[in-house]
Structures are given as C-alpha cells and as structure tokens.
Amino acid sequence: EPEARKIVEKLINNGLSPEDVKRWAEKNNNPEVKKAAEEYQKR
C-alpha cells in the first residue's frame, strides 16, 4: 500500500519512531499503516 508507506515516512520525518507510528496506527485503527511501519523497520 504506497499511500500507507507515504504516511509512515511522513510521520517518521516528523520525528516519530516506527514504534510510535505503529501505536498511532493502532489508535487510529489503521492496519495498513501499521503494516507499512513494520515493513519500514525491516529495511
């Protein structure tokens, strides 16, 4: 999901860690963003 990846990169560029992004995604019920954050961590 390229859109989710863009969101993850934007949040990380704004100073969030991938863990923060995953928590944000869970709080906002956004499994695509959570998955993208996990993939981002593996890179």
Rank of each mutant, 00 (worst) to 15 (best):
E1D: 14
E1M: 14
P2V: 15
P2N: 14
P2H: 15
P2L: 15
P2W: 15
P2E: 15
E3N: 11
E3H: 08
E3T: 10
E3Q: 09
E3A: 10
E3P: 07
E3S: 12
A4T: 05
A4C: 04
A4D: 03
R5G: 10
R5I: 14
R5N: 12
R5D: 12
R5P: 06
R5K: 13
R5A: 14
R5E: 12
K6P: 04
K6A: 14
K6W: 12
K6V: 10
K6S: 11
I7L: 11
I7W: 10
I7R: 04
I7S: 02
I7D: 02
I7A: 04
I7K: 03
V8S: 01
V8R: 00
V8H: 01
V8K: 00
E9D: 07
E9C: 09
K10Q: 14
K10A: 14
K10N: 12
K10Y: 15
L11Q: 02
I12C: 07
I12V: 07
I12S: 01
I12Q: 02
I12N: 02
I12T: 02
I12A: 01
I12L: 11
N13G: 13
N14Y: 12
G15T: 03
G15M: 03
L16Q: 04
L16Y: 14
S17P: 03
S17M: 04
S17D: 07
S17L: 05
P18M: 12
P18F: 15
P18G: 03
P18I: 15
P18C: 06
P18Q: 04
P18L: 14
P18H: 06
P18R: 04
E19R: 04
E19L: 07
E19H: 05
E19Y: 06
E19C: 06
E19S: 06
E19V: 05
D20G: 06
D20A: 10
D20I: 03
D20M: 09
V21G: 00
V21D: 01
V21I: 15
V21N: 00
V21A: 03
V21S: 01
V21L: 04
K22W: 09
K22F: 11
K22E: 07
K22Q: 10
K22G: 06
R23N: 09
W24T: 01
W24V: 01
W24Q: 01
A25I: 02
A25Q: 01
A25V: 01
E26F: 03
E26D: 11
E26W: 03
K27N: 11
K27C: 09
K27F: 09
K27H: 10
K27Q: 13
N28D: 03
N28T: 10
N28S: 07
N28C: 09
N29Q: 08
N29M: 07
N29P: 02
N29D: 09
N29I: 04
N30G: 00
N30E: 12
N30R: 14
N30D: 07
N30S: 11
N30Y: 15
N30H: 13
N30P: 00
N30C: 07
P31N: 08
P31F: 09
P31L: 10
P31E: 11
P31M: 12
P31R: 07
P31Q: 10
P31C: 05
P31A: 10
P31T: 09
E32T: 09
E32G: 10
E32R: 06
E32Q: 12
E32V: 07
E32A: 14
E32P: 07
V33P: 00
V33Y: 03
V33D: 01
V33C: 02
V33S: 01
K34C: 08
K34Y: 15
K34E: 07
K34W: 15
K34A: 14
K34F: 15
K35N: 08
K35L: 10
K35G: 04
K35W: 09
K35D: 07
K35T: 07
A36M: 11
A36D: 02
A36W: 12
A36L: 12
A36R: 03
A36I: 13
A36F: 10
A37I: 12
E38C: 03
E38L: 08
E38G: 03
E38S: 05
E38M: 09
E38T: 06
E38H: 05
E38Y: 05
E39L: 09
E39A: 09
E39S: 06
E39I: 07
E39H: 06
Y40L: 08
Y40K: 01
Y40A: 04
Y40P: 01
Q41M: 14
Q41R: 07
K42S: 11
K42Q: 13
K42V: 11
R43Y: 14
R43H: 13
R43S: 13
R43N: 12
R43G: 10
